[in-house]
């Protein structure tokens, strides 16, 4: 059983400030997290491995050399890592990423399960998993709160309106996992040291693949284009609520109701 887990990085929101009045973004600390959904997906893969054995391979990529994301995956317990980079990678969107990952699956000679975060923390896009399922022609389960392998099939708990239901499909399949689904384990201390130790460390085991070897240049052209930023209006000065206690309570209750309806 080979499980591929896609790890993407995201700027830690604690290090950035969106200044509404100046309509500017300040990046005070450029630090990256693993997308919470991807992190949770890796935990799901490792639990399957703990229970019944599996080869867990993490895949990540960035235009510039930075393989910290895959190294953290190895430290958590992944067996192998693939790191994609090279010319023409910048600005890759989910369509490009899906094509790249399809090529990765081909080059590995197949996989049984691909796990990836359901949405991204920053842009809240939820395209990569379904697009990849479409590209591979595999079934998809979107938003799995738990993932198991039962009798050679994948079984997951998924939301259905206000309920949670158990769903099942054949392997190979693509399953996306919400960021809150599973608490990721801490990296094992010894593995962590091993991964980051230069020569002979596990970090050396990362396969570095050039995207140019995986896709024709036209396959790397993104469809999505960024056209600028916008900021919410500045916070207005607060409104004083006056009146009897009952009137004030009514006004607050009304405001809360309106806010919660909109949310």
């Amino acid at each position: 059983m080979r499980i591929l887990v896609i790890l993407r990085r995201v700027l830690d929101p604690a290090g950035i400030v969106a200044h509404r009045r100046l309509r500017r973004l300040f990046i005070n600390r450029e630090e990256y997290l693993i997308q919470p959904g991807d992190h949770s997906a890796l935990e799901a893969a490792l639990r399957i491995k703990d229970l019944g054995g599996a080869e867990v391979v993490v895949v990540s990529g960035q235009p510039e050399p930075d393989d910290d994301t895959v190294c953290r995956g190895l430290a958590m317990g992944a067996d192998g890592a693939i790191y994609l980079s090279g010319e023409g990678f910048a600005g890759a969107d989910d369509g490009v990423a899906a094509r790249l990952l399809q090529a990765v699956v081909d080059r590995l000679g197949g996989a049984d399960l691909v796990l990836v975060g359901m949405t991204t923390l920053d842009t809240a896009q939820a395209q990569l998993g379904p697009r990849l399922a479409g590209a591979l022609g595999w079934p998809q389960i979107v938003g799995a709160w738990s993932v198991e392998i039962v009798d050679g099939r994948v079984r997951a708990v998924r939301r259905d309106g206000d309920d949670y239901v158990v769903v099942e499909t054949d392997l190979p399949a693509v399953v996306t996992v919400p960021g809150r689904a599973l608490e990721p384990r801490y990296p094992d201390g010894a593995r962590l040291v091993n991964v980051y130790r230069g020569e002979g460390g596990m970090g050396e085991a990362v396969l570095r693949w050039d995207v140019a070897d995986l896709l024709h240049p036209e396959g790397l052209v993104p469809l999505l284009e960024n056209r600028g930023r916008d900021f919410p209006p500045e916070r207005e000065l607060g409104v004083r609520v006056e009146g009897t206690t009952e009137e004030v309570a009514q006004a607050v209750a009304e405001a809360l109701r309106a806010r919660l309806r909109g949310a």
Partner: peptide, 18 residues
């Protein structure tokens, strides 16, 4: 426009060729 980090700010995006 799509909200970034739950609406801290917005990114304006387009798919001109698609």
């Amino acid at each position: 426009a799509i909200p970034i980090y739950g609406g801290e700010y917005f990114e304006v995006v387009a798919c001109p060729e698609a």
